[in-house]
Every structure is written in C-alpha cells, then in structure tokens.
Design a binder for these strands. Structure first.
Lengths: 298, 298
DNA sequence: TCCGATCTCTGACTAGAGTCAGAGAATGGC
DNA sequence: GCCATTCTCTGACTCTAGTCAGAGATCGGA
C-alpha cells in the first residue's frame, strides 16, 4: 500500500521531467545561460531588490552579483541603490530587458502549448483537472505548520478570514468585536499557542490553543481556507495543536463549535473527539467535544 | 481557453519542480556527482550496453566513457566487451555497485514517502489517481506516430494484439490466418502505408492504409492498446492515416468495421465519417464508412 | 561619533557537465 | 582480403554554477 503510491509518484516524476523539466531548461536558455535567464525572469518587468532575489533564488551573494553584472553588460537591466536604504540595490529591466522577459514568457508558453497540442478538448480538460488536483495536494502536503504570535499579522489575517466565514455561515450572524481581542494573551506561551499553516508564504489554515484548566487545554479558532479544504490540512492542524497541548502539559483538550459547521464536526469525530456536555458560556457554541491525549509516542 | 490550460501546466511545473525536481538532485548526489549517479542508476542491477546507455541518457560518447571510467575506478561497475559484437561494450555493476544502486533506490523512495507522509489515505488516493491520469495523458500527448514496415516486428506485434482482441470481442470469433499475410504488400509504399504510435519505445496503436481504387484509399487494422484508450490516440492515428492518404494522392478513404466495435464506430462518426453501403467482401464487416479528404491545409 | 551589523561587490578558486577531433579495434558487405 | 562504417576511448578544451574570503559602503543604535 505505502509503496504503491510512491511508485506512482516516482514514475510520474520520471515521465514528467523527461518531457518537461529537461526540455524547459535548454529551451529557455537560448543564448543566455540558464542562471542568467532565471534571474532575468525573477527580476520581472517591474524590477526587484537584490536581497529579495537572493532569498528567492537561494544564491550566493557573490554569484548573484556576477550574474547581475553580465545582465547589465548585455544592457538588459540597470542596478541602482535603494532609496530607503542605500546599502541595498535594486535591479530594474531596461526596455531591451523587458522584451527579453517577454520572449522568455512566450517561449515557455509555446513549449506548454506544443505539449498539449496533440490532445483533444476532453483530454485537455482531464489533464487540467488532474494537474490542478495534484498541484493542490502536493502543495498542501509540503505546507508547514508553525507557531506565530497570536497578535501578529499572520494570526490576524487568518482569524479575520475565520470570523468573516462565521458571520456568513451562522444563521444569526456572528459578532467578532467581543471575541477578537480578549483571547490573545491566552493563546500565547506559556499556557497556549497559535499555529498557522503556510503554503508558499500564504496562510491557509490556523488554530489556537489556550488553557481551560490546569489539565485541560482548549482548541479555538480552527480554520482552513475554503480553497484548501479536502487536502488534510484540518486534520494536520488539529494534530499539531494536540502535540502542542501535550508539550504544554495538558492531558486532555476540549473544543466547542456551532452546529452549522458540519464538516468540522465530522472531522472532530474522525480525529477521536467525543461529545461532552456544555463546558463554556460561548454564546455561539452548540456542541462540545473532548479528547484525552495519549502520552507522546516514542 | 487555450491559454487557460497552459497556465495550469506551467503553474504545476513550477510547484512540482520546486518541491521534487530540485530536491531530488541534491538528494541523490551524496558523494558521487549527479551524472555518475544517474549513469549508475541507468545501468541498473543487471547491467546495460554502453551504446544503449548513450541513447537513453543522450550523452556524448567521450563524456559517457569518462563517467564509466570513474565508476570503474570506484569499483562500482566492470566494463567488458559484448559477446556478439566486440566493438560494443557492456557495463555490469559489481556487488558494491549493486549496493550503491539499492541505496539510490532507497533514497529516492524515502524522498517520495516523505513527501506524501503528511497526506491522509483519501488524499493519497486522490493524488495517485491524478498523477496516473496526468502521466498517461502527458505520455500519450508526446507519443510519436511514424511509418514502419508492414511486415516488420512493430507492425506484427500491433496486428497480433489487434487480431487477439477481435477474436475475443467478435461474437463468432475471428480467424486471423487468412487476413494476416495477404495485406502486407498492399500496406506498403507506393500505394499504402502502415503507421504505429510509440510511447517510450512501446507500440501502443497502429493503423494501415491500402489502395481501394485509384482515388480511394482504405483504412485497415486501426487499433489502440486498451490501456491507452481515452487519450486521443485513435483520433490522432486516424488523422495521420488521412494525411498519409492525401500525400499518396487519394481523395477519399473508406473503412469497414464490425458492429461490436462500438467505440471505434463512435470515433469514426466524430471524425467526420458517414455510413455507406457494403464495398467489400470482408466477412467480418458489418458497417462501412467513407470520408472525403479536403486538400492539404496551408 | 563610534561600532558592530548589513549589504553588495571583487578576486581567486573548484567541480561538474559537456564538446570536439581524432585514434584504434572490430565488423559487415563486396 | 579490402574498405567504409561502427563503437569506444583519450586528450584537450569550454562554459556554467557555485564557494569562500575579504573589502568597501552604509546603516542603526549606544
């Protein structure tokens, strides 16, 4: 079972990189070295800071500097000091550079078109669907779940999306004013935490943990971006919160939810939560769950 | 419409190669250079001919020779002359080499497992399905349709599979004895041809064209491997045969078929064929079709 | 105003990947 | 048996990608 899908993955990778990956490289090159092309592409039509480029491409500063020099010598970009901080420099494409970027775009586009050209409309549709599905799952699988400050920008963004959704889904709406700020200290160390899942810098899920009693933690603000549901992020987030609860010394976690959040309730039950009686005075709660935490494995 | 799916393709490629492609490389390397690792992997546990390796990896003979020398010096392979043709040489891994190959396998496997580990069983299943679908379509899209000798090994293989399927599907079976050999001269130049579609050296579809009258060609032996149906190969094969017919000076093509081959009949109709009266004495034919060929576009 | 940190750049390297020309051995067809 | 061809190998290159160690400019805070 476990080996079956890695075989699929590896076979796919082989077939894909033989046809696309390898070809792409030699294709994009065209005169310029691949490194220089990639850099030019990454600079983009509106320019980019050198520091940011180094981060995005993961290059050595000396190497990047040299690449920039060759692009400059070819008259494709100009590099000038950043206005705010004159240690930093900014690369901006010239007109010629912008044309070169467009050419790269076009080549890449042509290559993709050439590949799907032999397929009929229904095959293309199926390929599209399969690639969209695979991309979402792969991206979700490689997303990282990390603690952030409960009052930081990432938490605020996620909680804002969460509240907006509650407002829309609860039959009588949802008043976020009261809840928004009061819980921040509770979801910070040492008695709590706030986690977000990120896919390529985008926050796509969140969840908080706070103290209920000395032995019981409470999960709050569990949310997964609607575009990213069905990828297992909710289950992972919940498991990460439970790990965190164990780490903080809780032996059990509670959570409450509204009856209208049916997918969430199903997930809690799948994850081993069982219904308990009302434990809070949360006016929006209509169902209460608990799960005993086994001690840390291994 | 057309740009929509190239965007999907390119987005997928970006996400995929960021996560898999790039990591794979540094991952596999481990001490040996990437080129040497790839070669060792391609030699495989049972060895391979040098000429074949060069073809498969697309390498310069000098470069390959040098890579083999380094593997030999590391005690991973032995290179000896081919028994049949002593100009050729064969690379065979030593015990140490076989162990190194296993290690590469294991690393690659681990990498794949690591990637899918965060996914639950239902997500893995969906990823599997999506990748299998995408792989099949991509491979089918990049398959090549080429003329081969009607009495060559590729044509024999394909026609053999075709006849076997007819035997199974026709209510009263099919007698291949008579048909097998008589048509070979007809499906060869100058009045006819035989085409096969290949996916990575495997023959997955075929089709023949022969003279019916001076103005009319006849399509025969259209077959697509059951594993490769639904990828548009049948439509492409038929179109290729029509192109060939035009090239050979025919203004119209006929074909006959058995009523039990329902998918084929549907495809003929989709491709612009219309039913005509019986034109042949083929005892298995129960439906007859024709299509006028427009003159070559452009 | 000084000092440590940050950012970029230059010079000096290395390793990998690959090309090109030609030599030498074996082969197959005449 | 001769000769063109095929296959592999060697030597002499090139180009790309990247590392490492500083130098010099600039910044932010004490």
């Amino acid at each position: 079972m476990a080996t079956a899908d890695t075989a699929v993955l590896r076979r796919f990778n082989r077939a894909w990189s033989q046809r696309i990956g390898v070809l792409e490289e030699s294709y994009l090159g065209q005169g310029r070295s691949l490194g220089a092309s990639r850099l030019l592409f990454e600079i983009g039509p509106s320019g980019a800071g050198v520091l940011e480029l180094r981060r995005r491409l993961g290059l050595d500063s000396g190497y990047l500097s040299r690449l920039l020099r060759t692009l400059e010598n070819d008259g494709l970009v100009t590099v000038r000091a950043d206005h705010g901080d004159r240690r930093r420099r900014v690369a901006v494409p010239t007109t010629k550079g912008r044309r070169a970027i467009e050419r790269l775009e076009r080549r890449s586009e042509d290559r993709a078109l050439e590949l799907v050209a032999p397929l009929g409309p229904s095959q293309r549709r199926r390929l599209d669907e399969a690639l969209v599905t695979a991309e979402r799952l792969i991206r979700a699988a490689t997303s990282s779940i990390e603690p952030v400050a409960a009052d930081g920008p990432q938490a605020s963004y996620a909680v804002g999306r969460y509240f907006a959704e509650l407002q829309e889904r609860f039959p009588d709406g949802f008043d976020s004013e009261g809840a928004a700020t009061t819980d921040v200290p509770g979801m910070s160390p040492p008695a709590g935490c706030f986690l977000v899942a990120r896919v390529d810098e985008d926050v796509v899920a969140c969840g908080g943990l706070q103290r209920h009693t000395a032995r019981v933690g409470e999960v709050k603000r569990m949310w997964v971006d609607p575009d990213w549901r069905g990828c297992g992020l909710g289950v992972r987030m919940l498991a990460a919160l439970e790990d965190e609860a164990r780490r903080l010394g809780y032996g059990e976690v509670y959570l409450d939810t509204n009856a209208s959040l049916v997918e969430a309730i199903a997930m809690y039950e799948r994850s081993g939560y069982h219904a308990i009686g009302r434990y809070s005075d949360n006016p929006y709660a209509q169902a209460w769950f608990a799960k005993r935490l086994a001690s840390l494995p291994r």
